[in-house]
Design a protein around this nucleic acid. Structure first.
Lengths: 313, 313
DNA sequence: CATAAGCGATAGATAGAGCCTATCACGGCG
DNA sequence: CGCCGTGATAGGCTCTATCTATCGCTTATG
């Protein structure tokens, strides 16, 4: 039994005439006759009674043809489903990003993407790098925004922008007004840090000066704040608890009279935010739309990498 | 799109593995891969995301496969319909017969046929010959029992039995006891006749003697009883209104003290009852069952023609 | 009554679809 | 680094869906 054969018997039943039915199906009359006969043989029943005057549908044929029509309708809805879903820019895109990225990127990204791909809602999750990696691999996420390097077999990674780290400190802190600023100057400062697992924490530690201690090398005086976010740390800095390094996109929002933000001179510490997706993900246009939307985001302090080349691991 | 392809994608979705799905479908893995790809190309969408670790069903794929399952179920119903209807001895057989046959044949025929083909109810209509002819040709009836000759293009006719005409008359009628009986003796009798359109009326007239009248040749004194049946005529004969000729199967039922029934000696007038059906009717076994059931009917006064050969016009 | 026309079935030929085996490319794993 | 398992690809074969041409039957018509 084939869908073609079902189309043929429905046509014959409708036209009550093999020749007309064949024309309606755009095949020759022998083709249609043979197909009908083949189906009748396969089913072991006569669907039509051929008389010289007319083609009559048997009692059983009526039921079979009604059912065939149902099958054809259902098959047609498959095509409709496909047509409706053929647009890669339709349907939710499951996206994951770092907690140190989301709050500062999404407010600009979401409206942009909604304008460019209105039928593609962005479903967003925030997780640390390793959770993002895992959820990307097992299909829970379609795309992730992480900090480079991000190497994973079967995953394509594409850097989107470089984001300098800036120093955030209370407005009345001595370093807020010192002419020359260097990383070294942080050695004796009380540095507030995100909890372990946050890649930004590790990046901060890797650029900060270390100090000698009895137990070996240690970083400057620091307080790790478990379960906190950049936002809470910023509030704490503003309230005078200590200083911190922030991605530049996370530095704004406080009055300068309370919170001072300073760039480092010369070669600045940076992180490189990259977009990553499974190489096999079947909606490349959705990825591309997301990429372009990120590049168009109003992030004033970052350096966009519009012409970076995707790298597959 | 083919039903085979739909089967394949459903299997892949179920097994989440091309190789296992191929085994489940009893085809090689490349065959299945190619078929899935062909369907995806035709629909213009990706149904599966192939990763080294596993095969993932896309969001759209989920919907397409659910729909495909529905299509396959509906297609399976066609097979079930056909299987249930493959028995030619199942389903009603639309049968028509003469009003002068039905009341005398059916009481014996129905139980016999019900025993031999329990799943084939006999749907019965009584009509005059021409109405039967018309309804047979246009498919309203599948088989008819008529009086031969019955010639019709595309229709096969097969005589089943010969039925003598007998004389019915009041028990106190002179002819009821006369030793020698001949058709000629009816010349002056009051002959009761069915209305025009009944073939039996014509058959009776064709065997009865005619008498000369001023306006030409006419039959013996007769009364045509419009809208009547053999039954009513028989009652009228019993009540003494006149005499009549009856098919022998219609002669029984009255006490001999009231209604006398006499055969004619020698060559008897007869009618030949035949079974007729469209040559193209697709249930020959149903016709054969009906034929055998008629031949097995307890009609004591008829001569069965068990070995007659079907004749197509 | 013979001829012509209409219809579905049949015959023979051809192109394509479906299927196979063998092999490749790629990632995972010891 | 080589081996295994996966799905994709290549090459070849068979079957089938389709075509054109024709037949056989029935009906309409001169």
């Amino acid at each position: 039994m084939t869908l073609t054969e079902l189309r043929y018997i429905v046509a014959v039943a409708r036209e009550r005439h093999f020749g007309r039915a064949a024309r309606a199906c755009h095949v020759s009359q022998p083709t249609l006759s043979a197909a009908v006969k083949k189906l009748e043989d396969e089913l072991g029943v006569a669907l039509f009674e051929r008389t010289p005057a007319e083609v009559r549908v048997t009692a059983l044929g009526e039921r079979v043809i009604a059912q065939a029509q149902r099958v054809l309708e259902q098959a047609a809805t498959i095509r409709e489903l496909a047509r409706a879903g053929a647009d890669e820019l339709a349907g939710p895109l499951k996206t994951g990003l770092l907690p140190t990225v989301g709050p500062y990127l999404l407010p600009g990204l979401i409206p942009l993407l909604h304008k460019r791909a209105p039928k593609m809602p962005l479903v967003v999750e925030e997780h640390p790098t390793e959770a993002l990696r895992h959820r990307l691999k097992d299909g829970a996420l379609d795309a992730v925004l992480v900090s480079a390097p991000f190497v994973e077999p079967g995953v394509v990674t594409l850097p989107l922008y470089e984001e300098p780290f800036v120093l955030a400190l209370p407005a009345d802190h001595p370093l807020a007004h010192k002419k020359s600023l260097s990383i070294e100057a942080l050695r004796q400062e009380n540095l507030l840090l995100l909890g372990p697992g946050h890649c930004f924490r590790d990046q901060v530690l890797s650029v900060c000066p270390v100090c000698e201690t009895p137990s070996g090398t240690e970083h400057s005086i620091q307080r790790t704040l478990e379960g906190s976010s950049l936002e809470t740390i910023r509030h704490m800095v503003a309230s005078g608890v200590g200083i911190t390094l922030l991605p530049c996109t996370a530095a704004h929002g406080y009055s300068k009279k309370i919170l001072a933000v300073r760039r480092f001179p010369g070669e600045q510490p940076v992180r490189r935010i990259a977009l990553a997706w499974r190489a096999s993900f079947p909606r490349p246009k959705a990825i591309e739309a997301l990429r372009r939307a990120v590049l168009a985001c109003p992030l004033e302090c970052v350096r966009f990498l519009a012409h970076a080349v995707p790298v597959a691991a």
